[in-house]
Amino acid sequence: MYPSISRKLVIRTRLDYRPIILETGLVSNASGSSRLRLANSDVLVGVKVELASPLSEKPLEGRLEFFVDCSANATPEFEGRGGEDLANEICRFLQMSYMSGDTINLSELSVLAGQQCWVLYVDILILECGGNLYDTVSLAVKSALYTTQIPSIKVATMDGDQPELELSEDPYDTKRLNTQNVPCLVTLMKIGNHYLVDPTPEEECCSSSGVVVAVSGSKKITAVRKIGSGSLHPESLVSMLKTASEVGAVVNKILMKKLLEEETAGKTQKVGFMR
């Protein structure tokens, strides 16, 4: 059995997610934004689009840069600098998950080959920690990227002069990235001889090992990270990766459907699913 969205579901099985509430378009000064609550975990994401120079090793591509901040109010463990290590871990894993060319076409962000490109700064704020932060963050990031509007820009070439960039003055003259294959993260924690998805804080405490798997919309695994101090048998790991791929594909499909429904409605609203 894989994630269900039936409202009649009362008993949560090992492969069911807890209820999810999604809102988009909340941050007025951002190019795209979302707020996603998975049970008691609450994450706000804002995306800002800016022109910059491309990386020397990738002159024909733009890029995404992730920044994670853990609010001190999210959990007592984040007071002081307690959330920095977790924030850095999530940030690094997101960057790794998006490195595959099959997730997002970064060449669409190129403006002037070798000179100018769009950079998407993805700012993630963890407002409340109720377990399974990796999955919550990834769903919120994908939702924010889906709504991100990139201004249209033209390159004007003058005889003997350097090319000039002309930014459209029409606020509705924008484009969006194809986020169909942007990965969702699936966390599986092993408890005894079994494993489960979407672990609660209590379930995380009962587990000594698990994996976080980045799964694109096409079911491709783009990154894997082991968590916990315990070991995993090779057969268990293979089974967990297969399950993560199946679960991730379903979660991606449901999320894209809900985002499309909200966009069709033409207004910001709360959308609930996985329940």
Rank of each mutant, 00 (worst) to 15 (best):
M1A: 07
M1Y: 06
P3Y: 07
S6I: 01
R7Y: 13
R12A: 10
L15D: 03
D16Y: 02
Y17I: 02
Y17C: 03
R18G: 06
L22W: 08
L22M: 10
E23F: 12
E23P: 01
A30I: 09
S31H: 14
G32C: 11
R37D: 05
L44A: 03
V45Y: 12
S53C: 11
S53L: 08
P54L: 01
L55Q: 13
S56P: 02
E57V: 06
E57L: 07
E57H: 10
K58S: 14
G62Y: 08
R63K: 07
F66T: 13
F66K: 11
F67A: 14
S71D: 10
N73T: 15
N73L: 14
A74E: 04
R81E: 06
R81M: 10
E84Y: 07
D85Y: 05
D85Q: 14
A87D: 04
A87S: 13
I90T: 09
I90V: 15
F93S: 08
Y98W: 14
M99C: 07
M99K: 09
D102I: 10
I104D: 03
I104T: 09
L106V: 04
L109P: 03
L109T: 05
L112R: 06
Q115Y: 05
Q116K: 15
C117R: 06
V119F: 09
Y121L: 11
V122L: 04
G131N: 13
Y134C: 12
S138E: 04
L139K: 10
K142V: 11
S143D: 04
A144G: 07
A144S: 14
Y146C: 08
T147E: 15
S152F: 01
I153F: 00
K154L: 11
M158W: 12
M158V: 09
D159E: 13
G160Q: 00
G160M: 02
D161F: 10
E166M: 11
E166G: 00
S168M: 04
D170H: 06
D173V: 02
R176W: 08
N178M: 06
N178Y: 01
T179I: 14
N181V: 04
P183Q: 03
C184Y: 03
L185P: 07
V186N: 08
V186Y: 09
T187F: 10
K190Y: 02
V197W: 02
V197D: 04
V197M: 04
D198R: 09
D198P: 04
P199F: 06
T200P: 03
E203H: 05
E204N: 07
C205Y: 01
C205K: 13
S208L: 13
S209A: 15
S209E: 12
G210M: 11
V211L: 15
V213L: 05
A214H: 06
A214W: 01
S216A: 15
G217E: 02
I221F: 04
K226Y: 03
I227H: 00
G228S: 12
S229G: 06
S231M: 11
L232M: 11
S239A: 12
T243Y: 02
A244Q: 07
S245V: 09
V251D: 04
N252C: 15
K257R: 15
K257P: 01
A265E: 14
A265P: 00
G266R: 08
T268D: 08
G272T: 14
M274Q: 05
M274P: 06
R275C: 09
